[in-house]
Computed example of a mutant assay.
Amino acid sequence: MLRSFDDLVRYQARMGEDRFPITDLLFNAQDGALKYLMVDTGGWLDSQQALVAASLVGEMTVDTAEVVLKATPEEFAQAPRWEGEHQPLFPILSNLPPLVVGPFGGTYAPLALAAEIDAETDAEDADRDPRAEAAMKRFETAKSWLGVDIFGRDGALGVLDDLLLDPETGRITHLVIDNGKVLSGKLLVVPYSVLRYRAGGGHLVLDTNAEALGKAPQIDQIDRLERHWHHDVHNYYMIPV
């Protein structure tokens, strides 16, 4: 049974008695191979993401909405930690007046404040986990793909609505596309191998066209994770299951 990314981010990762919210997946864009499961280990004030290697990801259980982690506490503690992107404040606050009156009558200079905060953040960035930094640069995050435009050989095809993951192979196997013409209660699913590349602008390019996509089999949302529809979809695109 396949798992959709939209469902997985509602799951929790379980390690012994501990539970962690799942926030994202890191995968190789070339073949869809899962590389890391990203889980939130911190509170709302100090959110920190642990990158759990795919080899340590175990069973994904629908009934309990859990993903079992095969990591020991020591392995989990040593997993790369990602602290999120640093968004410089200087460009944001540069549109404010040179001096701003605060709620208690005091004044402050937004640009000077932004420069001070950015300098402190840059110092903190020097201590960021280089393993996580390298992984985030090398691999793709599932969240960054959702909602991106999809193009084919003859123009726009729609937007990416979801990704389907096969827990047995540890690979993303299908793209779920919203072309604005899908029947109610149906999904338009394309094998991942139809993907040609992700362009520099962020959009995806498929080896198909609008006419072929419009005639492709649409599957029931209820049955979207079962395998019985694989043959219909893969035969249509002449791709082995």
Results as ranks from 00 to 15, higher is better:
G152F: 02
L99F: 14
A114W: 04
E226S: 15
R153L: 11
A134G: 03
K143C: 02
H203D: 07
V233F: 05
R14E: 09
D127Q: 10
F139H: 12
L89I: 08
A13Q: 02
T169W: 09
P130I: 10
Y237L: 00
S47N: 11
A199T: 08
T208M: 08
T141H: 11
E133I: 15
V190D: 02
S94P: 06
L146P: 07
T208I: 05
D166G: 04
T121G: 01
A53M: 06
E85P: 09
L204A: 08
P110D: 06
I219M: 12
D125V: 03
L51A: 09
K137T: 13
R171Q: 06
G32Q: 06
A156C: 01
G158N: 05
D127C: 01
D24P: 06
M238Y: 13
E85D: 11
G16P: 00
E85A: 14
P130Y: 12
H86G: 00
Y197N: 13
N235R: 14
G214N: 11
R81V: 15
V101H: 01
L69P: 01
Y108A: 05
L93R: 11
R3Y: 10
A13P: 00
G158V: 03
A71S: 12
L8H: 12
S144H: 10
R224Y: 13
P91W: 11
E66Q: 12
D122W: 09
Q12D: 03
F20K: 01
L160A: 11
L99W: 15
G185A: 10
A119F: 01
V189T: 05
D46I: 10
S94L: 06
V194F: 00
E133K: 15
V57Q: 02
L26S: 08
D149W: 05
G155E: 07
G147L: 04
V52S: 04
H203G: 00
R171H: 14
R128V: 00
P167K: 05
H234N: 11
P80L: 02
H228V: 09
G170P: 07
R198C: 08
V100E: 01
N235S: 15
M1C: 00
G105N: 07
V67S: 09
Q218A: 14
L37S: 02
V101E: 11
D40W: 12
A119P: 00
R198K: 15
L8R: 11
V159A: 08
G155T: 01
Q30R: 13
K186F: 14
K70V: 03
G106E: 13
F151L: 02
D154Y: 07
R224Q: 12
D31G: 08
D162A: 01
A212T: 10
H174A: 00
L146E: 04
R196P: 00
P110Q: 03
